[in-house]
Design a protein around this nucleic acid. Structure first.
Length: 292
DNA sequence: AAAAGCCCCTGGACGC
DNA sequence: TGCGTCCAGGGGCTTT
């Protein structure tokens, strides 16, 4: 489900509930997520204080007073829900949770009285405890490319990463080693805004020396703009993504191409029709007329 | 080494 | 209403 804007939305929702608080109780109802949680998972969290919650690409990282970092990934269908004591008193907890409670796999009880529930129907999500001193060597994080919203991500960086790549631009942008945090939606939307075809060979945004051309400039600008707008809207809610307060993200209403097969291209004067193709086994939506 | 394919899993939408 | 089929915001691992 969640790409960078959704994960960032979740991070911001978890922050007030968890930062500076300690775990009073941790329930593991189903430990068989993408990778099984270790036997001592709950025990290693209990009593520890969350000193901060960060994000790297689509990973959430909770820094703990024990020196561990709790690494969390939402997979395709994972979500976190925060309930305050007053929610429970008002009966909100029960009303909102009963339908999905079967997939509440991990529950954090925080010293603030807040309950943080990890729900994940497909169980592609994961959690892992890593000593902070070993974070640099963490395999899941090690190969990740630059953060697309960071200053280090610019046309030169992207062009260098795409230099000599024979694969499609779409596949290159989905590759987390090239740029970290984009997924199927925001790749499609970025390519549309940059007026670049998803079928274009990735290396064509750079010259032979790997220097960026004007396509690379446009693409980087589009990526940053789309992600920033999406974060402002609380992400996109298609099937599973919700904010930690249960409210929906709103960016799906701003999709220009994603999931809009057969609809008119929104580019003024274009007159094209959004097409769906399959690349590397995943849907791509684009306008064949104005995306070259 | 790079690129593409396979798979993990559940549920919703669709056609018959 | 009850199937069966296809599809889904990811990504590690395996194969080509």
């Amino acid at each position: 489900m969640p790409e960078l804007p959704e994960v960032e939305t979740v991070r911001r929702g978890l922050e007030p509930a968890m930062e500076g608080k300690h775990f009073t109780k941790v329930e593991v109802r189903r430990g068989d997520l993408r990778w099984p949680l270790p036997k001592d998972f709950a025990q290693r969290l209990k009593g520890k204080t969350v000193t901060g919650i960060g994000r790297r690409a689509k990973y959430l990282l909770a820094d703990l007073s024990s020196g561990d970092v709790l690494l969390m990934h939402l997979g395709m269908s994972g979500s976190f829900h925060v309930f305050q004591e007053k929610d429970r008193q008002l009966g909100r907890y029960h009303r909102q949770r009963e339908k999905h409670a079967a997939h509440d796999h991990v529950v954090f009880h925080m010293s603030s009285g807040a309950t943080v529930t990890f729900n994940d129907p497909r169980r592609f999500g994961s959690m892992k405890l890593v000593p902070r001193t070993k974070l640099d060597a963490e395999p899941f994080l090690k190969g990740l490319g630059p953060e697309p919203l960071g200053n280090a991500f610019d046309a030169a960086t992207l062009a260098r990463a795409c230099r000599g790549k024979k694969t499609s631009l779409k596949a290159a942008l989905l590759d987390q080693r090239v740029v970290a945090g984009l997924g199927n939606i925001y790749v499609c939307e970025s390519l549309y805004r940059a007026r670049l075809s998803p079928k274009r060979t990735a290396s064509t945004i750079a010259d032979r020396k790997g220097e960026p051309n004007q396509r690379a400039e446009r693409l980087v600008e589009s990526i940053k703009a789309v992600l920033n707008e999406a974060i402002k809207s609380g992400g996109s809610s298609l099937r599973d993504h919700q904010r930690t307060d249960g409210e929906l993200g709103m960016f799906q209403h701003n999709f220009r191409v994603y999931d809009r097969e057969g609809k008119p291209c929104p580019t003024p004067g274009c007159g094209g029709t959004i097409k769906r193709i399959v690349q590397n086994g995943r849907s791509t939506f684009y306008c064949p007329l104005c995306q070259k």
